[in-house]
Design a protein around this nucleic acid. Structure first.
Length: 734
DNA sequence: AGCACGCCGACT
DNA sequence: GTCGGCGTGCTC
């Protein structure tokens, strides 16, 4: 009989599992989901047991090595999450070791107990219970400790005893020596919110959306909640969560970025009688481990997290919510390139729970799923309260005299609004002072040495920074080519806008919000607070400002340059532009006063832009979906990208040529391979980049091609000289 | 990705 | 004479 082996996912880029003999020592009956310490080549690594089975007949038995030790006495990763990992490995054609690494927080990927941070408690012994404080005679501090513990019923966390005064711990230790008390480590209790805020009364649309989703909550169901900005999606989320809390189930809420967690958390803490946890990249390893373990233990009822939280285990799964589901941040852009949105839907189906995708500007993929009836579709078309939707207007800036990129008409409206004491926002998705530094004598421009890109001039810093690779250097005094001192700039960034506007409106308080001004801890919160309470009247920012924030006094929004998306070579450019315009526009007129949105463009007659202005996002989406259908792009086809990069351009070419040959040999007529083509910015951070695009109308043939292709590429000799990756369902083509 | 093994150049 | 350069092969 063939021996039983454990198939283990090993942290390595190899697209296979490794078989081991069971360990000599103790191990659980069912080791799937347990971490194991195994020998791997000449080193020891921690892997995850994925399955148990018979030894592979093709593998000589003597090559099998035994597991050194099983690190868990029961599976740490539950079966449900192992299934999600297996699905991810198959779908994304990514090495299992790297996929399964995502199932555990960093702090649990090493040796050691899967235990969360402990809290010290002091407890009374039997003797301590029997002793009256007076019996301690001339030891007043011991008396105090004893009395305190007796009052508390015999046990208290050490933290809550600190008011007993300096040095109380040594008093307690002495009493422990005398057998009156003892110390114990316990799991800290998770605070339960009271949820004191009264439930909001839902407006008819919200109520209708709620009941529509609620009617379909036993088992799997996916609903798109499409609600214009300010329509109160959060109230619907809260009502749904209350419902599943009443059934004693857990809810997982995913948001695109950390910046959105604090406000949502605050809102949830006020509204929900629940134990709420957080999971995002701003937390340290220990905090993430603790949330992970508490989620797994069922000690948290609601968890709010970013992308990676889709892997949090839930023993009582009740509901998943993905807010701003269209946001590209849900797609991981390196390593294991998963879409948290797509994985969440798969997970919901696997675990038979409902999922709600919320957005004011749904991704075209999601919209199509809703229209084809695969997803439920609930809509909120009215803004809550009295708020009216803002009017969108286009400003044609062709041939116009501009001041720092601002047209006369935009400046005039700005004058009026600011004079009236109202708040205005200027949106420009480019930080720094100017994107180009140029020599007016010889035409030299400041280019990045490692990228095919210009360096951005940062005036306050006095530096030239490359926004693609992070390179930075001092601003030259003179042109390095011709020594002329006539250096000038072209184009503008938020820093320039801020400076020019400060000169124009010296008595208006303004705030700039971009990655440069919010680097410091807490700076973003402070600036957002200033923007929210109206302390800052003029707001200038990049897309950081576009998301989810509420500025009640804001009446004018100016999009300084709307053309970036329209002119993009990526077929998703217009979709991004429309989402951004709609999201930014949604910041205006959320209070009582009507809002106005001015869009500066050099392509005012662009059909998709016109459709967006006239009919809003839904009309845009109709038109864009029609275009995608005609062009055979997603969601009407499926894409994968094989990317490669290396310092040696020839290495990239050689690898992709060989890959192309392999691909063409196995591809049938249902799959189209295109390339290799260089990336639009061919060189980045000193590496040459190129790619092959693989397209198919149906998913099946695409996967039939990739399943053998991925491991074949791995064995290519030319693959060792490049960094390569497969991106299934890419969201950026470059 | 690591890591070991292996075969050729400038140094204690 | 060796330390170490990175090419190439392997990891149950």
């Amino acid at each position: 009989m063939k021996p039983t082996v454990w198939r283990v996912a090993i942290p390595s880029p190899l697209r296979r599992l490794f078989d081991y003999l069971p360990p000599d020592g103790d191990y659980p009956e069912q080791p799937v989901g347990c971490r194991v310490q195994v020998p791997f080549g000449s080193r020891k690594v921690v892997g995850l047991v994925v399955s148990v089975g018979e030894a592979d007949p093709d593998l000589p038995l003597k090559r099998l090595r035994p597991v050194e030790s099983c690190l868990d006495s029961e599976p740490l990763v539950p079966e449900s999450m192992m299934r999600l990992g297996e699905w991810g490995t198959r779908y994304y054609h990514h090495p299992p070791g790297e996929v399964f690494e995502h199932l555990l927080p960093l702090a649990l990927r090493r040796e050691g107990q899967a235990q969360r941070r402990q809290e010290d408690w002091w407890l009374l012994s039997e003797a301590g219970r029997q002793t009256h404080p007076d019996e301690l005679g001339r030891a007043p501090r011991q008396q105090a400790v004893l009395a305190r513990l007796q009052q508390a019923g015999g046990a208290l966390p050490a933290q809550e005893m600190s008011d007993l005064g300096q040095g109380w711990q040594s008093v307690a230790r002495r009493m422990a020596d005398n057998g009156l008390l003892f110390k114990e480590s316990r799991d800290p209790a998770v605070p339960l919110n009271r949820g004191e805020e009264p439930e909001m009364v839902l407006n008819p649309e919200q109520a209708a959306a709620l009941s529509r989703i609620e009617s379909d909550m036993d088992g799997f169901a996916c609903h798109l909640l499409e609600g214009v900005t300010g329509s109160g999606k959060t109230e619907v989320y809260l009502a749904l969560i209350r419902r599943i809390l009443a059934e004693d189930k857990q809810a997982l809420v995913l948001v695109p970025e950390i910046a959105l967690t604090p406000q949502l958390t605050l809102r949830f803490r006020r509204a929900l009688p629940a134990r709420i946890g957080l999971y995002h990249s701003g937390m340290n390893d220990r905090e993430r481990r603790d949330t992970w373990l508490m989620a797994r233990a069922g000690e948290l009822d609601v968890i709010i997290g970013t992308r990676s939280a889709v892997f949090l285990p839930l023993p009582r799964p009740g509901l998943m919510i993905l807010d701003e589901e269209h946001d590209p941040a849900f797609k991981q852009q390196d390593g294991f390139r998963y879409s948290a949105r797509d994985l969440a839907v798969v997970r919901a189906r696997q675990q038979a729970m409902p999922i709600v995708l919320g957005s004011a500007t749904p991704a075209l993929e999601t919209l199509r799923n809703a229209r084809d009836g695969r997803y439920g579709h609930a809509q909120l078309s009215q803004r809550a309260g009295d708020a009216r939707p803002p009017a969108l207007k286009v400003i044609d800036i062709r041939g116009q005299e501009l001041e720092a990129g601002l047209s006369g008409r935009l400046l005039q409206r700005l004058d009026e609004r600011l004079k009236a004491g109202e708040q205005a926002l200027l949106f420009l998705n480019r930080r720094g002072y100017a994107p180009v530094l140029v020599c007016n004598q010889c035409g030299w421009t400041a280019d990045c040495l490692r990228c095919d890109a210009r360096m951005t001039y940062h005036r306050r810093r006095g530096s030239l920074d490359c926004h693609h690779c992070g390179a930075s250097r001092r601003l030259p005094r003179a042109c390095p080519e011709c020594a002329s001192e006539k250096l000038g700039v072209a184009g503008q960034g938020t820093e320039q806008l801020e400076q020019v506007l400060a000169r124009r409106y010296p008595h208006i308080s303004q705030v700039r919000i971009d990655r440069d001004t919010t680097r410091r801890q807490g700076a973003l919160d402070a600036k957002l607070a200033a923007a929210r309470d109206g302390e800052a009247q003029l707001l200038i920012g990049t897309q950081m400002l576009a998301k989810g924030h509420d500025f009640p006094n804001l009446t004018l929004v100016g999009l300084v340059d709307a053309d970036q998306g329209l002119m993009s070579a990526d077929f998703r450019g217009p979709e991004r532009m429309a989402q951004l315009v709609t999201q930014v526009a949604g910041r205006a007129g959320r209070g009582k006063k009507a809002g106005e949105v001015l869009i500066q463009t050099r392509a005012p007659e662009h059909p998709l832009l016109e459709t967006l202005i006239r009919g809003g996002y839904p009309a845009f989406a109709d038109a864009a979906l029609r275009e995608r259908s005609e062009a055979g792009f997603p969601p009407y086809s499926h894409l994968a990208l094989l990317r490669a990069e290396a310092h040696e351009k020839t290495a990239v070419q050689a690898f992709l040529e060989e890959a192309m040959g392999l691909g063409q040999a196995t591809a049938d007529e249902r799959v189209l391979l295109m390339g290799p083509v260089p990336a639009p910015m061919e060189r980045r951070a000193g590496r040459y980049r190129a790619q092959i695009m693989i397209q198919a109308d149906e998913r099946t043939p695409l996967h039939q091609l990739l399943t053998p292709l991925a491991p074949a590429l791995e064995n290519l000799k030319s693959a060792r000289r490049v960094r390569w990756s497969l991106d299934v369902d890419p969201i950026d083509l470059f």
